[in-house]
Amino acid sequence: MSAAMLVPDVGPAQRDSLLGRTNPLVKLGIALAWLIGLGLTLDVRPPLVLAIVALVSGLLAGSIRPRVLLWRLAPLGLAALGIALTNLLFSTHNPDPLAAELFRVGPLRVTAEAVAAAAGLGARIIAIVSVGGVFALTSDATRLIDSLVQLAHVSPRFAYGTLAAYQAVPRLADDLATLRGARRLRGLREWHPRLLVGMLVRAIRHAEQLSIAMDARGFGSGPRSTCRPVAWTPLDAAVGAIALVILVAALLLGR
């Protein structure tokens, strides 16, 4: 595991793109609305439409490089296939004598209805991870936290405490390398559950030092001023409205 893989991958081109300038809360809202919409249909068409819309808008309106997007999504294809396979082999339709049998796998009967449902669920996962990939590659953690505090009125102590903790992510990768090196020197197996204890010890020590430093600077003790103001823009309303129209259209297609 390298530190580079864990650091948010939002470059200047993505940040300044149309989707990058859209408020992360709007994108999160869209992602959750689409997620719930996807949960309403087993048809294969709506998730495919939503996946294609997400990927194309990520590439065109989000300026994400195709290779980066592909690299993000590739491992998820495997998971989508695995879950689709479970739905295929153990479908509620398979024991139904009225369902059309296609083939048998050992003792398991596989029906046409099961194939349709498995395709729908596999496509659903592809849609979910496509939306997630585009969200992650165009959204900045700091802007999300700023928006949560200023626009969603989340407690600033919890929100900025979380943001401070996020900064520990690259350190954790370094800590892990150090701990593995120490184990190697002692002739121990490099990967062991005890590594987790070492990581937690270092992370908690870091958190305590950080909290002392933050308290010393008056964190959360009085009225806050805002360093990076965030406001809703017409772009947020437009992107949100378009996304809702696309969701409704995709769901109608599945009827």
């Binding site: 505090v149 903790a165 909290s211």
Partner: peptide
Amino acid sequence: AAGAQPAASPSRFAAWRTRDILVTAVIGVV
């Protein structure tokens, strides 16, 4: 200073020290 936020409201969460917040968040991060 574009605008002032009200201080953390005195709810039951007010009992959280900065240290509690940071340690919980860092456990989440790990």
